[in-house]
Design a protein around this nucleic acid. Structure first.
Lengths: 257, 257
DNA sequence: CCCTTAATGTGACTTTATGTGGCTTTGTAG
DNA sequence: CTACAAAGCCACATAAAGTCACATTAAGGG
């Protein structure tokens, strides 16, 4: 009798996992007409590859954690891709500055397995996340906490930024105008981002595609060289690509329009 | 018969908790068709992970992220009592300063239903917790993050403290000597707490009974008037009660030896 | 063909999850 | 403050799930 390939089964297990979030050993054994032991071996193998985590009775996918705040989930995939792309510019031994925001949080997430870094941030979640690695030296730029951003803003924050000098700054933006200008919701936020950029030798702007359709009132003046805009993809028509490309190189992370 | 996966149940419990704020053991038992005992075990497990807090009859979500989980649970009841007692000294309209630590976090918990307050803190979990109330104005005293404390320390923090003046300061301590002196683990932490006290019109020290048996190396010099030591109970013999009472009034929160 | 190898099945034994019953604790109505 | 029902806790029982060693089978290469 021809034996069905184990690889096919593995693929289907992962597919089921993707659809349902979790699978049970007994269900799979019945579905594929193999013994539970075989399924267990499959799951063990896949677990070793880091494709799932096994639990008593079955397995579930790794990203199943229903924590994290709501906004983080919005276009999570795109933001994670941006985060990974941005992390590639960070070299060991660097001091970097990370702005608040869900996109920059994805960058922090991508840096958690790194060491020998100094990270300055005004974001509380990013600060907590990186401090817990215990290998990344983290400095929190204090100030008045803005509840929506869960980050510090204000005179104190501006003062603190001025005291530091970093290799790279990764800042977010409230929106991007059709002329390629970064914009923000408030005067203070715009000023703060501007000062962050000024404290760095080079600045990357992190913005996912949803920012292209947003128009916010205050332009962010950026004096220091913009090393690049890192985004997941660029919607057509929202901003003149030539103009944009002329001003700052665009790094597209991930794919799919 | 195949048993449904326990992790799925855990996930759904957390989801329900996120949506409803609290869940009851009996409801969950009925919903998942398992015994109440099983649900209790689930909740206990999740509570140990710091994902929720159990109460008589069920569980409710904790308003802050999983963080100091381990230490927070240690003598949680005593610390909660201390937090509630300390909160009574805080009046509407006040500006207060809250030090980092699991005991002071309990104070922050007790303040979450209040409004019209300004709170300064160097603790990230406290900052996040209070900022999310949206009614309490929160200022984070930034600086280098100490991973174990999840709080900011250092020159920047000292600078920021000096810029403010508050009505009350609530500080922690690493230990209490038999002569009634507050002590700390490091020179920097001691200095910082000392400055916090100096920035306030009056200072309360929050310490649960476990601190009486701890002797840490650096004394905390406190210049401003100590309004009181707030503790759950005082172990006999560890510190001369007369001496202690002479220096600062003791407020015993809660009960049981 | 026979031999090797990888995948799968089997059975004995261990571990885990859940249920059950007796007893204690807690919350609350009277 | 007391009484009592609901909830919690603990110890034990049990069935499902996991583990491990060994047997079996199919595929492939001389």
């Amino acid at each position: 009798m021809s034996r069905p390939l184990a690889v096919d089964r593995h693929g289907q297990i992962l597919q089921a996992l993707d659809a349902q979030g979790s699978v049970s050993v007994s269900d799979l054994a019945e579905r594929f007409n193999v013994s539970m032991e075989t399924i267990r071996r499959d799951l063990k193998l896949l677990a070793e590859e880091g494709r799932l985590v096994t639990v008593h009775g079955g397995a579930h996918r790794l990203s199943n954690e229903p924590s994290l705040s709501r906004r983080t989930i919005e276009n999570a995939e795109g933001k994670a891709a941006i985060g990974r792309a941005a992390a590639e510019f960070v070299e060991d031994g660097m001091a970097i500055l990370i702005d608040s925001g869900s996109t920059t949080l994805a960058l922090a997430q991508a840096l958690t397995n790194r060491g020998d870094l100094t990270v300055l941030t005004n974001s509380l979640p990013i600060g907590l996340l990186l401090a817990r690695t215990k290998t990344i030296k983290t400095v929190l730029l204090g100030g008045e906490i803005e509840p929506n951003d869960e980050a510090a803003f204000g005179l104190d924050t501006l003062d603190l930024i001025a005291k530091y000098r970093v290799d790279l700054a990764f800042i977010g933006a409230g929106g991007i105008s059709e002329t390629g200008q970064f914009t923000d919701y408030t005067r203070l936020a715009a000023e703060q981002r501007s000062r962050m950029a000024a404290a760095a030798k080079a600045t990357y702007v992190l913005a996912d595609h949803t920012k292209f359709s947003k128009r916010t009132p205050v332009p962010i003046p950026i004096a220091s060289p913009i090393a690049g805009l890192i985004t997941d993809y660029m919607p057509k028509g929202e901003v003149a690509p030539e103009a944009a490309a002329r001003i700052w190189p665009i790094r597209i992370a991930g794919s799919k329009p």
